[in-house]
Design a protein around this nucleic acid. Sequence first.
DNA 1: GCTGCACGCCGATCTTGACCTCCACGATGT
DNA 2: ACATCGTGGAGGTCAAGATCGGCGTGCAGC
Lengths: 216, 216
Amino acid sequence: MTAGSPDTTPDGALPRPRGGRMPRRERRVQLLESALEVFVAQGYHAAAMDDIAERAGVSKPVLYQHFPGKLDLYLALLDASCDTIIDGCREALASTTANKDRVAATMKVFYSYVASEEGAFRLVFESDLTSEPDVRERVDRVTIECASMIADVIRTDTGLPDEASELLAVSLVGMAQVSARFWLAGGGGISQDDAAALIAGLAWRGIRGYPMTDDH
Amino acid sequence: MTAGSPDTTPDGALPRPRGGRMPRRERRVQLLESALEVFVAQGYHAAAMDDIAERAGVSKPVLYQHFPGKLDLYLALLDASCDTIIDGCREALASTTANKDRVAATMKVFYSYVASEEGAFRLVFESDLTSEPDVRERVDRVTIECASMIADVIRTDTGLPDEASELLAVSLVGMAQVSARFWLAGGGGISQDDAAALIAGLAWRGIRGYPMTDDH
DNA sequence: GCTGCACGCCGATCTTGACCTCCACGATGT
DNA sequence: ACATCGTGGAGGTCAAGATCGGCGTGCAGC
């Protein structure tokens, strides 16, 4: 079994002779970490199970002992990432009752999610497997659940009908996720906090402009 | 050569005996139309050259007579779709000097682009081939060029620094494209014009809130 | 009318990458 | 010594991109 350099496995651990093994649960966690790195770097289609196994420093059958198939491995990671951003959004909205602060907190959550070291957001915002229904369902659910929480606030405070509130909420989610990804790709001309505050300011100015008496 | 039903090719034309042929330029146009239908419906990876050939009512070697490979076929369609939205955005911004109307016109363009019958926007906003550099470059260029045009207006009217203007512009682009796609998927509870106007109103309220004296 | 050529076309096949599995090995605990 | 567990070298299988070698038609020239 080849290693990247003499005496170490690809992740820098000491070489493990045949049977140099881990408890099953530790191995599963390690495989997920390696898989995430590969899927984030290459996307689903360009990532081969060979690549993932190599990154984990194991052979391919080990992957199949823990996951029924490649798609299952991907969905396990996607689920975790979806939960992260949905939970974060919920917590941000619940963290205060002041709407201006809710907007700021939510924007901060999106920027932190996109900025996180392991890049799990790419499985949600930049998936190349959305033709697969199980993936599409999860990716859409992120937008729908985040928007739904935001729409509840909009509806309560503006009296706008459901469809309008939902569409406004979705556009705020779109603003957050597209600008955060652009900020990340742009190499940080603005700090993360300043960028999040800037876009939160735009969002707040926009959304506070809907008084209760407004109708369209 | 089999057909979907007796006496017709898949596109409903009468069967063409061997040698029933088209001039080269007409054939190329027809192949592009068929390819677009298949890529839009299935995405790049799930679309097979067999599928495209069958949709066009020809054999696979005919595809390779007009396009060096699958990726080239996809890029030809992607380029056309990118040009459509960039040109539309430019025309919308140039159509008036009133900023409020610029915002409305640009939003209308995004909603019309997403609503268009053949669904070419999916190659730009929902591509599953962004791990391929040639695709990534084009898809990013749409966001960057649209945002750049919008940022010029923002910078001129607010005096905000370049990076801030760009980021605000990108968030407006994100708001447009994500809300338009959500509106399309939602089955039209709101009319296209009402939806575009609603989101344009949010955008306008947000962006007009940056007076020249504002600093961050 | 015949022949040769240009053009557009296709059935069959090749090639290859990658998902997934077979069968057996080594380490560990009892 | 044996059972169990975690593991790997090797390879089966197949889908799909791409190509080979040749065919049929229409037309111009003789």
